[in-house]
């Protein structure tokens, strides 16, 4: 196994593209090292992104906030603009693992690990985040929900990697929230995760919404019916119940060691209601 730590994106692409064997990206390493040590993967090449300066920064661009692939969750949560503008994404990122893990774990890594239970991904999907991919053919931007194609599988081609994530600029009256259910308080994997992003007008009426569920299907689910249940309402009890029902109906979870089908479907609705209330109240403050 070779370990490389290039200092430019181009060098990283070249290393990945030229590797004949199995190549893996190391950002925070909080998933990769665990899988490596437990024998799940046997890489021929590991390319560490943490020496590439451009990937270690958070930058305000004209169309949003760009978060480099080597930015850990803890750093994202120390960035005032990030926390003020995208509280749902930030609170999802700071739920990953433990305090120690958050000092390393990145949202790009969380995305590319392609776990259906990833915490930051439903929040990013709700926020319509865009992944920037670098590869042998150059650069391309794709919505984050197109990265994972199934548990552990991504749409990235050989030589490609996510170098950063753009959190698109928000209209006034927009905010988001993320909630997950775990039996403990930390160090756990979401049994259900819900990311919700809403926009409200001056009357407090919801004009746009996006609802994403984690851990209840093979991929992150975008529940359009749940969004429609909110739009045109002020988040009254009936609307929230309709939202919950839509989420429970959309969820197609499995019975496993973390929860039953019935439990996960119900909790998807319960958490969606709670997350929607938080997102709506945050959005009103952003008018």
């Amino acid at each position: 196994m070779r370990y490389e730590s290039p200092t430019t994106v181009e060098a990283a692409v070249t290393l990945l593209a030229n590797e004949a064997g199995k190549a893996h990206i190391l950002a925070g390493g909080t998933d990769l090292l665990v899988r490596l040590r437990s024998g799940f993967i046997e890489p021929d090449l590991i390319v560490d992104l943490k020496r590439i300066d451009a990937l270690k920064s958070i930058t305000m661009e004209s169309d949003g906030l760009r978060v480099g692939a080597a930015v850990p969750s803890a750093m994202l949560n120390e960035h005032a603009d990030a926390v003020a503008g995208w509280p749902g994404v930030c609170e999802a990122a700071i739920l990953i693992g433990s305090t120690q893990v958050q000092g390393r774990a990145t949202i790009s890594g969380n995305l590319c690990n392609a776990s259906p239970a990833a915490d930051s991904v439903p929040a990013m999907v709700a926020a319509r985040a865009i992944a920037r991919i670098s590869g042998p053919q150059g650069m391309r931007d794709v919505p984050v929900e197109e990265i994972a194609t199934g548990p552990g599988k991504t749409s990235l081609a050989k030589g490609e990697f996510v170098d950063s994530i753009l959190l698109p600029k928000r209209a006034p009256g927009t905010s988001d929230a993320y909630l997950r259910f775990i039996p403990r308080t930390e160090m756990d994997i979401a049994v259900v995760g819900v990311g919700i992003c809403v926009t409200v007008d001056k009357t407090g009426t919801c004009t746009a919404a996006r609802v994403a569920l984690g851990a209840v299907a093979a991929k992150i689910l975008v529940v359009e019916a749940a969004a429609q249940a909110l739009i045109g309402t002020k988040g009254d009890e009936a609307a929230l119940n309709a939202l919950a029902a839509a989420c429970s109906a959309a969820a197609t979870p499995i019975d496993d060691k973390r929860g039953t089908v019935a439990f996960r479907k119900e909790i998807a609705g319960t958490l969606a209601k709670r997350a929607a209330k938080i997102a709506l109240s945050r959005a009103e403050k952003n008018l």
């Binding site: 433990s98 039996p183 403990r184 308080t185 930390e186 160090m187 756990d188 994997i189 496993d256 060691k257 973390r258």
Partner: peptide, 16 residues
Amino acid sequence: MENPGFLDYRVPVASD
């Protein structure tokens, strides 16, 4: 055994 690790064999953590 489906949960042979501390991730899914859930001992309480300090913050619990």
